[in-house]
């Protein structure tokens, strides 16, 4: 059975393996530096649907079917699907998962959804309650802009601190198999609010939560940053990554170049006009399902600390002048256990 370490970390005891992943992304992500790692790159951001919300759900469905196909399984082999997104009432996930007719847990911790889904999935498998679980997350640039910001056709300028919501869905199949990579630890994040109110600077809002969770992970596991080949946060972007880096230094943990962010990896800042980087649930989900899983399989990376980050705001909380709390869930993934 899983064991509690320190205040926030859970050590997974029985093997929980990530047996396969699938990533479906939009056209812009398909022009980015990680393009070759994605399973499906869409030409059409509407994915043949009539609205962006429907498109997001269809992207979820495509990713679920793809991961089941890649793992050579049928949907009946999946015990539980755990997924979340950014749309009101989690409809991005639910309308996509529905057609598979499998047991479903919808979750929400904003853009850190994939970290929460993988943690809950790993614990459920560790407990023996399930053998195969899909953990996934999705977001869509247009549906997110529509819900959180301004209409797409409005002639305005994006702030230099803003990030670009990734269109896509990333899914992982977790199983009790003996082949790595394995999920070995899950550090459950706390909600951290450092008083940032600028919704165009999400990296700054989330960086304190990321640093809090990463520091908690090291404290609880008694590991050092050098233990990992890569520490990668979810969607802090360039500004948030630098802030998290400095906050970690302040806490006594000196990170180095092995610390980066999925929002930095997924877009080419110079060519793609994405300002501070990528964001959204899909940012960490597809970067993991594509690039990171590939690196773990090829053993160019053997130990990673994957820390998806989320900004816990709603359009209403923002309009009522509330600051933006952040959350980050860390998942340690290692080729040996």
């Amino acid at each position: 059975m899983a064991k509690r370490l320190g205040e926030q970390t859970i050590k997974i005891d029985n093997p929980v393996s990530i047996i396969n992943t699938a990533s479906v992304v939009g056209p812009k992500e398909g022009q980015g530096p990680l393009a070759r790692y994605f399973d499906v790159v869409l030409d059409d951001i509407l994915h043949g649907c009539e609205s962006w919300e429907k498109a997001e759900s269809k992207i979820v469905e495509t990713a679920l079917n793809k991961v089941i196909e890649k793992a050579d399984l049928s949907s009946r082999d999946i015990d539980i699907i755990i997924a979340g997104d950014l749309l009101d009432q989690n409809t991005g996930s639910t309308f996509g998962v529905m057609h598979l007719n499998r047991p479903f847990w919808g979750i929400f911790s904003a853009c850190s959804n994939i970290g929460q889904a993988m943690s809950i999935g790993a614990l459920t498998i560790d407990s023996g309650a399930a053998e195969k679980i899909i953990a996934g997350a999705s977001s869509h640039f247009c549906s997110a802009e529509k819900q959180f910001r301004t209409p797409l056709e409005l002639g305005n300028q994006r702030a230099p601190t803003s990030t670009w919501t990734v269109t896509g869905s990333g899914c992982t199949i977790l199983s009790n198999s003996q082949d790595g990579p394995f999920i070995t630890h899950a550090t459950v994040g706390k909600i951290v609010d450092f008083g940032v109110v600028d919704a165009a600077n999400m990296g700054a809002a989330m960086a304190p939560a990321a640093a809090d969770t990463i520091a908690a992970h090291f404290r609880d596991t008694r590991r050092e940053p050098s233990y990992y080949d890569l520490i990668i946060t979810g969607d802090l972007g360039y500004i948030g990554r630098e802030l998290a880096f400095r906050l970690m230094g302040d806490k006594g943990y000196q990170l180095d170049d092995t610390y980066t962010d999925c929002g930095i990896k997924i877009f080419d800042k110079a060519k793609q006009d994405t300002h501070s980087g990528g964001s959204g649930c899909a940012c960490s989900a597809v970067t993991f399902a594509g690039y990171l899983f590939n690196a773990l399989k090829e053993q160019t990376l053997n130990k990673i600390l994957f820390v998806p980050t989320g900004a816990l705001l709603s359009p209403t909380s923002s309009q009522q002048g509330q600051s933006i709390p952040g959350i980050a869930h860390a998942v340690a993934i290692e080729n040996t256990r």
Binding site: P160, T161, F194, N201, P208, I239, L247
Partner: peptide
């Protein structure tokens, strides 16, 4: 790090519009 000091750091690291 205190919140006020953090806000100063955010301002320092966040580029302004041109």
């Amino acid at each position: 790090m205190e919140k006020t000091k953090y806000q100063e750091l955010v301002n320092e690291l966040s580029p302004n519009s041109k």
